[in-house]
Design a protein around this nucleic acid. Structure first.
Length: 367
DNA sequence: AAACGCCGCAACCGCCGAGGT
DNA sequence: AACCTCGGCGGTTGCGGCGTT
């Protein structure tokens, strides 16, 4: 037999609270204090169950509740805490004065979660998910203006071996197909030897140590895809076939979020995690316009991404970042106070695109 | 102007653990 | 030990506002 309901629901009102009900509840609690929720509605003259009263008080009427938009700093903190605590909304709320767990939960589900998905980040694990990334935007931004960088991007992505999740998915294959078409349409463009990163090329070739027979035709490629036997190595081979000599599987240029497991030992307590989470989970990319990158708040979550003014986003440097860094959880520095959601989103997305800095790719040599 | 769909948020629901009897 | 109440938590729902067609 199930547990009896918290109260007799017959005759009790449900749904949105009226201002009169709010006033009655507030008046009663001001006189008698919160608690004894079971008897509170009767004593206060409310036709509500105790649970409803408690929720109304804790989530809305409490005087110390902060209303209004979440600040950039608050959002930053939520993402940090969620990366280590998961959906422990009450624990997260405990570190955000004035915010309720319900409010944080709603904000996560309606704003942050969607934004992370758009940026190719799994909102559950906080790990990168290529299959979530908006590849069409990458394609459009690079193939139109900078096909060489697009190819390099793909090369990087396809050569990523540190990911646990498969990087090659139908979307990627579609992208590769498109690039192949571009090559056929513009053979002179793709046949150039861009002669970039030669050292890294040779290194990667040594690492790959694989010799695959050349694909003879687009049909062969299509058959390969349709056959379903298409591994990351095969995809890599495909990129070689598209003629990306000069483009290396340059791991150090691939911005890569780190999973929690990579930076935090599992036996650390939540308090230790609090310190640890101050470190990089995501690694920003520079912009393609020569922009030195966003000025992240000092000691902020984003600042800790190891952004380098010289466009040198070293994967190794991130990996070696100690998780015991004393970076404070709550930034005391100034921060960009984006006033709108769009501003905030564009601000965030600018540091998480899989983009290649033009400073390492002289376009004039290509064109 | 009306219909429709989307989105955000307040509120509800079911479950659980702690504590008292 | 068993039962009950209370408070808390996370997931889900549904309503109202808003934009689009």
């Amino acid at each position: 037999m199930g547990r009896a309901p918290c109260c007799d629901k017959n005759g009790l009102k449900k749904g949105p609270w009226t201002t009169e009900e709010d006033a009655m509840l507030v008046n009663y609690i001001q006189k008698h204090g919160p608690g004894n929720w079971r008897n509170l509605p009767k004593n206060a003259g409310l036709q509500r169950c105790g649970k409803s009263c408690r929720l109304r008080w804790t989530n809305y009427l409490r005087p110390d509740i902060k209303r209004g938009r979440f600040s950039f700093e608050e959002e930053e903190t939520i993402i940090q805490l969620h990366s280590i605590l998961g959906n422990k909304w009450s624990a997260i709320a405990a570190r955000l004065p004035g915010r309720t767990d319900n409010e944080i939960k709603n904000y996560w589900n309606t704003h942050i979660r969607k934004r992370l998905l758009r940026m190719g980040i799994d909102p559950v694990t906080h790990a990168p998910r290529i299959d979530l990334l908006d590849l069409s935007s990458i394609l459009s931004s690079y193939v139109c203006n900078n096909p060489a960088a697009a190819l390099l991007n793909l090369s990087n992505l396809l050569n990523s071996t540190h990911q646990q999740q498969p990087l090659v998915n139908p979307e990627m294959l579609r992208l590769a197909t498109s690039l192949l078409s571009i090559k056929q349409a513009n053979p002179e463009m793709c046949s150039q030897n861009y002669n970039l990163h030669q050292n890294q090329i040779s290194n990667s070739q040594e690492q790959n140590n694989q010799v695959l027979p050349p694909l003879q035709s687009n049909d062969q490629f299509q058959n390969l895809i349709q056959g379903g036997d298409f591994s990351a190595d095969m995809a890599k081979h495909l990129m070689q076939q598209i003629n990306v000599e000069g483009f290396s599987p340059n791991m150090t240029n691939l911005s890569c979020p780190l999973s929690q497991e990579n930076i935090v030992p599992p036996n650390l307590s939540a308090d230790h995690h609090q310190t640890a989470v101050s470190q990089a989970n995501y690694v920003p990319c520079s912009t393609t316009s020569g922009n030195p990158g966003p000025d992240f708040p000092e000691n902020s979550y984003f600042q800790s991404f190891n952004y380098n003014k010289n466009h040198d986003f070293s994967f190794d440097s991130v990996m070696s970042t100690p998780y015991s860094s004393p970076t404070p959880l709550n930034s005391s520095g100034t921060y960009i106070n984006s006033s709108t959601e769009d501003e905030k989103e564009s601000y965030c997305s600018s540091w998480l695109k899989f983009e290649i800095p033009e400073s390492t790719l002289d376009i004039s040599d290509i064109m």
